[in-house]
Nucleic acid binder design. Structure first.
Lengths: 344, 344
DNA sequence: TCTGATATGCTCAACATGAGTATAAGGAAA
DNA sequence: TTTCCTTATACTCATGTTGAGCATATCAGA
């Protein structure tokens, strides 16, 4: 108890100059800003030269900035302010994702060194022009996770590169039980051996690839150059940003099923095909069109506006809008994914 | 960009003595440790005298300790170590809940004052003996949220106290649209006006009650004594700990539906009634027995052990065990709640 | 008007769910 | 030892939801 109240006391003692004293803990704020434009889910990145890591060159990074207690009234405000400064975007929907804390604690960070923890946020926006200080770019998030896109069937990357690599990782386990445990993890993560592919296990998959040292960052984090095999395992990112991105992807994939967040990514009026393409882009799978329609329409999630989109190239499609009342009617309104469409 | 790398540089500069310099940001670690014993879900609390708040006396608090970068290798390890010190418990299943950051930023905290952010964790254990430095107690979590327990029908507290109080809060809105918005929030949160009761909206409900100043902390946080009406709105806690607890409750209620976490709260072998009582305790509702049984048994979540519990007071019940293979077979294995049983 | 788009409507079997009734197997009271 | 109360477990059945597909509507352009 003594330790606890002592810490609180010292925390409460006012300081004279905020920026003069070296902070013992730096709190970083990271934003995963997502938009979807015609079939492709995009994430906003800035490019950054990472002194800390081997390999030197500029790497993709998430918009990031340290929390400034003197300026930022809350964590979320701090995040919004950094995002605005670096990308020019005023964020709308924002939710906290996860707080990452093991970073800078691996051997190379030095003993007794400072600690950086990052509070990561997920933001959903409609794609828009960029401005701000950083060189910000929208990027297809499947550039970072090519194995996550199953919209045109199971990616050959999995069977051709990942599975064999994981197979050899299996054999490196210390003993039989450890091998078994690794095999189970692999099968569940990648949907092998009559296990279904679970779209939400994105973080598990990335962490597995990291642990098996298949992915670029696994080498650069210990100061080695990226091995050539890692080339087609997605673009690497600075620090642990790809891990944060994997967390965001998984969270979003889960969330669209029980909360109407997709609509944050769509204009106020949209066709059902448009809605479906956005959901498919996020979930990384194809859906059965007629059933999808039935689900969102009869589920009360959308309502027709009476207006039509003539640009379809076929029969004009009715424009729909999000039906706000659904929030009252159903406990967990979202796009529960109807079974995937058979391979095209 | 400049600001960003400058901050990183300063973070990287090693310090001489960790405890000598006043940290600008203190990172707190909070643990919500949950167990269930015969029908009642319990949370582990320590009692603590809160100098900062009016009202003086000792209040219930969650096990808490500041992150010590010099000692704790990761956030989670830090948390485990504090929990062990204060309660004597070695935590098993632990998951990160949320990072709370607006604390100590309200007017009374002083300008330019230090910042405390808290990273909260949820831990699930089987109830056990307590030890450690703190005066730790297991408490029924419905002591803190009496309106959340619907196991014997809708709590009269809601119709008798909460609804009227919220009604007057409605009328205090600045204009009509604001009133409308408040009414919608209230209806959705508390399942009024043909909106179903959503067991997972625990945080929304607590925050609503806080905003409407119905709950004890709303007064004490601005230095006033707790008004008498707040007496039956649950035990207050120190600081924002009740908010953290509400978050934990909601998260756990959601999670049991799609991940087999309930089994962390049960012994290796249990009867189906036992399992059901634990789920009901968490969800705060009664379930239809036969359907519950069908769900977990045919869903492959459990398997019979061939042994029987003779202590039932009726026909002996078979003992079941968690069936690990379900992790491979189904994407989101959990106790999807079968419809509530009609009021008894 | 025919063809190729896309949108939208409708059907049907399989499966899941809500809400029971019926039967089994203990202990305790009569 | 019979009756009754208790809890466990089995089975039923109407209804709802889902997967999968066929059928029809409405546009553009050949």
């Amino acid at each position: 108890m003594a330790t606890r109240s002592a810490a609180l006391e010292s925390a409460r003692r006012p300081r004279k100059s905020a920026s003069a004293t070296a902070p013992s803990v730096v709190v970083g704020l990271n934003a995963v800003i997502v938009a979807v434009t015609d079939e492709v889910p995009r994430v906003l990145t800035v490019s950054r030269t990472d002194h800390a890591l081997a390999g030197g060159g500029p790497a993709d990074a998430l918009p990031f900035g340290p929390l400034r207690p003197e300026q930022h009234r809350t964590l979320e405000r701090g995040l919004r302010s950094w995002a605005r400064q670096q990308t020019g975007i005023r964020l709308g929907y924002v939710e906290q994702l996860y707080t990452f804390g093991d970073r800078f604690r691996d051997p190379r960070a030095g003993q007794g060194g400072p600690w950086m923890i990052s509070v990561a946020y997920l933001a959903l926006v409609r794609e828009q022009q960029l401005a701000g200080s950083g060189e910000a770019h929208w990027r297809d998030w499947y550039d970072y996770f090519p194995w996550e896109d199953w919209r045109s069937g199971p990616p050959s990357l999995i069977s051709q590169t990942i599975t064999p690599a994981l197979e050899s990782w299996l054999t490196q386990a210390s003993d039989m039980p450890a091998t078994r445990a690794r095999r189970e993890r692999r099968d569940i993560a990648f949907g092998l051996h009559r296990t279904p592919w679970d779209t939400e296990r994105t973080l598990e998959r990335y962490e597995l690839l990291y642990e098996a040292r298949i992915v670029g960052e696994a080498a650069s984090d210990v100061g080695k150059p990226t091995p050539p095999e890692a080339e087609n395992l997605g673009r690497p990112m600075a620090l642990d940003h790809r891990r944060i991105l994997a967390t965001a992807l998984g969270r979003l994939r889960g969330k669209i099923k029980y909360r109407p967040v997709v609509f944050e990514l769509l204009p106020p009026a949209f066709t059902l095909s448009h809605l479906q393409r956005v959901v498919e882009a996020l979930a990384g799978i194809r859906l059965h069109k007629q059933n999808f329609r039935r689900l969102v329409e009869r589920g009360g999630l959308v309502e027709g506006t009476g207006q039509y989109d003539e640009e379809t190239g076929g029969r004009p499609a009715e424009l729909f809008a999000f039906r706000r009342e659904v929030l009252r009617e159903r406990a967990a309104p979202g796009v529960r994914l109807p079974g995937p469409q058979a391979r095209v």
